[in-house]
Design a protein around this nucleic acid. Sequence first.
DNA 1: TATTTATACTGATATTCGTCATTATTTATG
DNA 2: CATAAATAATGACGAATATCAGTATAAATA
Lengths: 230, 230
Amino acid sequence: MTILSHISHCEDGNDTNNCFKVLTDEEKMLLENNRTEIQFTKGETIVKQGTKATDILYLKEGLVKIGVNSGDNNLILCVKTKNHFIGTENIYGYDYHPYTVTALEDSTICFIDISAIRQLLKQNHTFNAEMYKVITNNSLITYDRFFSLTQKQLHGRFADILLCLSKNVFRAQKFDLPLSRKDLAALTGMAPESVIRIIKDFKTDKIIATKGKKIEILNQPLLEKISTVG
Amino acid sequence: MTILSHISHCEDGNDTNNCFKVLTDEEKMLLENNRTEIQFTKGETIVKQGTKATDILYLKEGLVKIGVNSGDNNLILCVKTKNHFIGTENIYGYDYHPYTVTALEDSTICFIDISAIRQLLKQNHTFNAEMYKVITNNSLITYDRFFSLTQKQLHGRFADILLCLSKNVFRAQKFDLPLSRKDLAALTGMAPESVIRIIKDFKTDKIIATKGKKIEILNQPLLEKISTVG
DNA sequence: TATTTATACTGATATTCGTCATTATTTATG
DNA sequence: CATAAATAATGACGAATATCAGTATAAATA
């Protein structure tokens, strides 16, 4: 399903990163004193592209989409699950949010002051190394999606997203889809009508089954094949 | 031309990074003792996707392409100019080259031992911060290209690449194009025939002029407009 | 619960773009 | 220098996919 071995198409909701584990109690307190925890309800905008970044985000609970928009064009770079950092681009070098983050489910976000993050990166090299891993993983996921969306056609792209949602985001064959058809379109770089048609195709071929917002993967091997064939 | 203010579509060949400037003499020696400088001629593969990474690359002189391939599909993620790091994904977290690096012009590459880089990141936080900037910039460029290739159609995509080559890579209205039509196709996510047709279109509209490998931008404002309109 | 509004779906049509086959031109090689 | 090989260019065609217009369904709101 992917060009990069080991690297999946999107974030993994259960494999938490090790960033916090490597901190001393004192360092944890520093973090604690420099963060604000805020609840967002489904649909709410968490940060908006172009605004000044003063914090690094940590998704404690929930699910969000990372989107880039310009005019009518809409692109969802990726979907982030709980226990992931968001906005690591703003740690050093760029002071504005490069994308819009929106809650797909009710979510709990920690806003961590950038200066606190910098302090920790400076004083705890293991934390620093873990942060590199987080950022590197982001890059690899982006390359993989870049490849998928530019080199595969509709069915392959949609197979990629379905596999990612099933394997990494929900870790189940059957799950509630929190994304609208329009979201799925922005995530796969196609028109919403195309999304609908592909879902229909996959249903007639017994690859998936849907009922309301529920979606179930019936034939994963075939989906994998569609993904690789493109 | 881009969704992210300040951020251009590709690397800038003249704005060198500050990574080395912030090192002490002793640290520079550490680097000196842990690097190997190798010459590559045009067309040579510098590192190959999937192979084990033991070094971080620094392009001292020349021009390279960063490509991802799988089967027949070919994608050029970006073009890197001199004075840029390559393979920062391998600093921590991932031990294999995620892409193939190929020389577009005769190039001089420094292979820097990863452990030396890690040592410097650990002991010199300013160097560390500069490395974050390098990596962040890479991410932003990738997002921008991601957007271009998935949201714009052929003419818009090709305008983006032309503007990038002119403004950032060669810093001239007129330059020798070191990329084949096939390369340009892989860079813009289209068929080589489409590249040829668009070049023809741009020539009939007096937007560009070509002569052999030389290419000249005649109407940059219009090119910018084509880029934004998509 | 009725009414509006947003989302999902469908079919017909148009367009963009890739593929294929062929020829010209450049570059590499004996 | 001649020949082969790679690259570039062109036109005809077809496939993939977007757009549009319309309907059905679900969700939000009065």
